[in-house]
């Protein structure tokens, strides 16, 4: 049986892992990416996601070096994203060692990017990341870009379906309101998207304790759950989350580490 995946995520800035609370403010250093990747891998992580948040060309190249170092060390899939806006960006990350490439603002600006990348490199490596925020005026979840700063007026469900039609292999769905708060995933949002598309959906934003993972993978119908700060700052571990899920009857890949503490 296909299992639910637990995915630690790193934001990488100039070669270091950092974590923002609420996307923009409160940046905290969370360590060396290679050491963290190895730790998560040993603890039973099912995949890793690495998002490059560098603003400069040098920062981006530093991230490529980090991708290569991480890819060499870990034997689980690695998704990399951040600033991807052309097919050449996708190619460069794949060559650096990424197994999948995540695109966000670049895909919103030019949806053909999804189609081209899927055609050139296969759908399996195209992840479309969607940052979503509930817009009270629209009465819908709105697609946000530029790291959650800019609204697009586009409905998340419509965009997710379109991305899937264009050849996305997976959706990485982040609730902007929830991200970094550790108050739980947005179950409504996740379920809406997971039921709207026929490709896997990774839920992100808001993980604070192991119960949150259980809820989003069952009620929220997510195929995978992603978290950053809750793992970096050792509030709980990948092993503990998976042990808890297993105890609750959720199918997970069990590597025998961790107790549901």
């Amino acid at each position: 049986m296909l299992t639910k995946r637990i995915i630690p995520c790193f934001d990488v800035l100039d070669g270091r892992v950092v974590k923002h609370v609420g996307f923009l403010e409160n940046r905290r250093d969370a360590g060396d990416p290679v050491a963290l990747a190895e730790r998560y891998c040993a603890d039973g992580a099912d995949e890793l996601v690495l998002l490059d948040i560098s603003a400069s060309e040098e920062g981006r190249l530093a991230t490529h070096r980090v991708v290569a170092q991480v890819a060499e060390k870990v034997n689980i899939p690695l998704t990399v994203g951040g600033g991807v806006s052309t097919v050449d960006d996708v190619r460069a990350l794949l060559l650096a060692g990424a197994d999948k490439v995540s695109m966000n603002t670049g895909a919103v600006r030019n949806p053909q990017l999804i189609r081209e990348a899927a055609h050139r490199f296969g759908e399996q490596c195209v992840v479309v990341a969607i940052d979503a925020k509930l817009n009270e005026t629209m009465g819908q979840y709105e697609v946000m870009v530029k790291g959650g700063k800019v609204g697009t007026g586009m409905d998340v469900i419509t965009w997710a379906k379109r991305a899937a039609d264009f050849g996305a292999g997976e959706i990485l769905l982040t609730s902007f309101r929830q991200d970094g708060t550790r108050e739980g995933f947005d179950i409504t949002l996740t379920r809406l998207v997971a039921e709207a598309v026929n490709i896997p959906v990774i839920a992100s934003g808001g993980a604070g304790k192991k119960e949150h993972f259980y809820k989003v993978l069952t009620e929220g119908k997510a195929d995978a759950a992603l978290a950053a700060s809750v793992f970096h700052f050792a509030e709980t571990s990948v092993g503990q989350v998976k042990a808890f899920l297993r105890q609750k009857g959720v199918p997970v890949r069990w590597t025998g580490t961790g107790t549901p503490a």
């Binding site: 049986m1 296909l2 299992t3 639910k4 995946r5 099912d46 759908e123 399996q124 292999g169 997976e170 026929n198 490709i199 896997p200 195929d223 995978a224 890949r253």
Partner: peptide, 8 residues
């Protein structure tokens, strides 16, 4: 769901 993606 297609692709069949993940650990089985």
């Amino acid at each position: 769901k297609v692709p069949h993606m993940g650990w089985n």
